[in-house]
Design a protein around this nucleic acid. Structure first.
Length: 449
RNA sequence: GACCCUAUGGUCUAGCGGUUAGGACAUCUCCCUUUCACGGAGAUAGCCCGGGUUCGAUUCCCGGUAGGGUCGCCA
């Protein structure tokens, strides 16, 4: 029998990076086994839920490329879904829950208490067989000893998480529950409920949690806790996916950069690690650089243009060949797309602000005659291509008796405003003779006499 | 407080009853180079502590410590 797994987030308005990894592991397992990946929205808390909050989840999963075989098609809880075990919003499944509760009440497995309904929890320790952790024997805690029974239907008429989660897993024929380790202890309750419904519980696989870089627990407030911050910062989904795969799972053969299809081929539950992992932003950045460098031109242009637009720079005002030529000088030189406007905005702006520290060093009186001579040399060039520019600059340096760096650094600053950037000769070629000379001219006006 | 899970360099990890404990990120040095990035060469750095089992434990067992989780009419 092919496994059926599910990702069952609650729409709170954001998608936790740990939740994204849970979704990823479920998706990987389904794809590896040829099973079914179900997306179910646990929106029982009506006051807190909204279509926008659901969209955050759907968009996050889509961005990562984690497609679901069954689940909602839109954020509308009453809207259409795909799959034959729907609806896939818990808010639409209320009748099922009430029926199940009736059943438990009639068999005296649950009872009313102060307007709520409580489940008669077994007093015996419960064995939780876990595919990652192994067999876990979970006895009652001291507080639970006092009152082991727990509420399954609130006095306001809302069924609680433990109940609806179990009922849906049961009715959706979920075979493997892959979820965060924070649910491990609660699994005893879930197993007891499955037994009360006369059904064998699914297989469980509890995966370790993701912690902050300093080892503290990652809460909503922590930077980087939300998946969308990575999208907003200009990360590539393939980099995020790759990194997430490496957190708590290992291909075991020293592979670091590994494609999604290779992971699908290798992924299995026993390889999941048992201990929590700290989120290493630097390593994610490294992977980002790896993937950014091998982007196809078309995708690179698209992401770059979008990044500029987000920063208020409309590249559509420039000829397409100019935009492409400008972007070509940047590819592989930066990592995050939201860094691009600062890195290469000079191509699309007329007024530059010079980086103060660099300007202090470069725009000094002794550089005035040097830049003047270089400006004249550039002005006389018949063809303003990178090779000619390089030759002209080197010849000028030789004539002046200085190292090329003496000319290069002030020229770069004059042309871009920054001490760092794309290859100088290539960026000047893209800017063209007129702009290049004009920018040197402008820089000369900055130099004190 | 009780219960549960976990423990290899700073971080992610591989590994094993006997290994020069492997890789990656980060850090440092050097090379390449117009800057940055890339690439190349090298360096620093690790088996949480204490018992036990064993000829021999990083590896197996127990205890401690530390981190994380759970014990809600939150999910």
């Amino acid at each position: 029998m092919k496994p059926r797994v599910r990702f069952a987030p609650s729409p709170t308005g954001y998608l936790h990076i740990g939740g994204a990894r849970t979704a990823l592991f479920n998706w990987l397992y389904a794809r590896h086994m040829g099973g079914t990946f179900v997306l179910r929205i646990e929106d029982t808390d009506a006051a807190r839920n909204s279509q926008e909050a659901v969209d955050v989840i759907l968009n996050g999963l889509r961005w990562l490329g984690l497609d679901w075989d069954e689940g909602p098609l839109t954020g509308d809880a009453t809207g259409p879904g795909k799959g034959d075990r729907g609806p896939y919003f818990q808010s639409q499944r209320r009748a099922n829950y009430l029926n199940r509760i009736e059943g438990l009440l009639s068999r005296n497995l649950a009872y009313e208490h102060e307007g709520a309904v409580k489940f008669r929890m077994t007093r015996e320790p419960i064995l939780i067989p876990d595919l990652v952790v192994g067999d876990v024997l979970r006895p009652l805690t001291d507080r639970e000893e006092l009152d082991p029974d727990f509420v399954i239907l609130r006095s306001d008429g809302q069924p609680v998480f433990h109940l609806v989660n179990v009922i849906d897993d049961l009715e959706m024929d979920i075979t493997h529950v892959i979820r965060g380790e924070d649910h491990l202890s609660n699994t005893a309750k879930h197993i007891a409920l499955f037994k009360a419904f006369g059904v064998k519980p699914p297989h469980y696989a509890h995966i370790p949690l993701i912690l902050n870089g300093d080892g503290s627990k990652m809460s909503k407030r922590d930077k980087g806790a939300s998946l969308m911050t990575y999208l907003d910062d200009g990360f590539l989904p393939e980099a995020v996916i790759n990194y997430l795969c490496l957190l708590g799972w290992s291909p075991k053969d020293n592979l670091e950069k590994i494609s999604r299809t290779d992971v699908v081929e290798r992924f299995d539950l026993p390889q999941i690690l048992r201990h929590n992992a700290r989120f290493d932003y630097e390593k994610l950045l490294w992977l980002q650089g790896e993937y950014a460098r091998e982007l196809t031109d078309d995708r690179f242009y698209e992401l770059a243009v979008h990044a500029f637009a987000k920063a208020g720079i409309d590249t559509n005002k420039f000829p397409l060949h100019y935009v492409k030529a400008a972007l070509d000088t940047c590819k592989g030189k930066f990592k995050l797309f939201n860094e691009l406007p600062a890195y290469a905005g000079f191509y699309f702006r007329d007024y530059l602000t010079y980086e103060p520290e660099a300007a202090k060093k470069a725009f000094v009186p002794e550089n005035r005659p040097r830049l003047e001579k270089l400006r004249d040399a550039f002005g006389k060039l018949p063809a303003f291509d990178a090779a000619s520019i390089e030759t002209a600059l080197k010849t000028t340096a030789t004539d002046l008796g200085v190292k090329v760096g003496v000319l290069i650094h002030p020229t770069r600053l004059a042309a871009t405003g920054n001490p760092h950037g794309p290859s100088l000769y290539h960026l000047l070629e893209v800017l063209g003779k007129e702009k290049s000379v004009a920018r040197i001219e402008k820089a000369l006006s900055q130099i004190p006499l």
